[in-house]
Amino acid sequence: MKSELFVNGKSRVVEGHPMDRLLDILRDELGLIGTKEGCGEGECGACTVLMNGEPVLSCLIPRIQCEAATVETVEGLAAAEARAFLEGFVSDGGVQCGACTPGIIVTALALLRDNPHPDRQEVQTALAGNLCRCTGYEGIHRAFDRGAEDE
């Protein structure tokens, strides 16, 4: 099937099997390799993108549900939003290997849109669907704390 999506603000027409994953559409058809596969079954959050403004797991979304959808990936979001947060995220130790990072950034930016000053518990609730194996999550908390301090 052929579908039109709006990815990072641009119309993109893609074609393939209705049950192909949005993750593969982004990576293989559109070359948006920032979105990572960590488990392929909705557990790790590495493939998080915003669909119609909400964080979702692109490994669990079939092509048939992408028609006319607005999709924002890490490439689009990181280029447009919260540069200071992203820099702090690096310097505060939110990043180590980086494989979970795009998913975490997408979820984090979605949280900050709704809630510019999340407390520790709100950060935990929002990011509970994003596994990180390197940082112990403490550097991620620091990045949010600094954001609050900078305000």
């Binding site: 948006l32 390799i33 920032g34 979105t35 990572k36 990936t73 890490v74 490439e75 990181a78 280029a79 992203l86 820099e87 995220f89 690096v90 310097s91 990043v95 980086g98 494989a99 990072t101 795009p102 950034i105």
Partner: peptide
């Protein structure tokens, strides 16, 4: 603690694994 040189390309998704 200078910023890690791979940091920017990890947060914006451009680093190729």
């Amino acid at each position: 603690s200078p910023p890690r040189p791979d940091g920017a390309s990890k947060v914006d998704g451009t680093l190729r694994y």
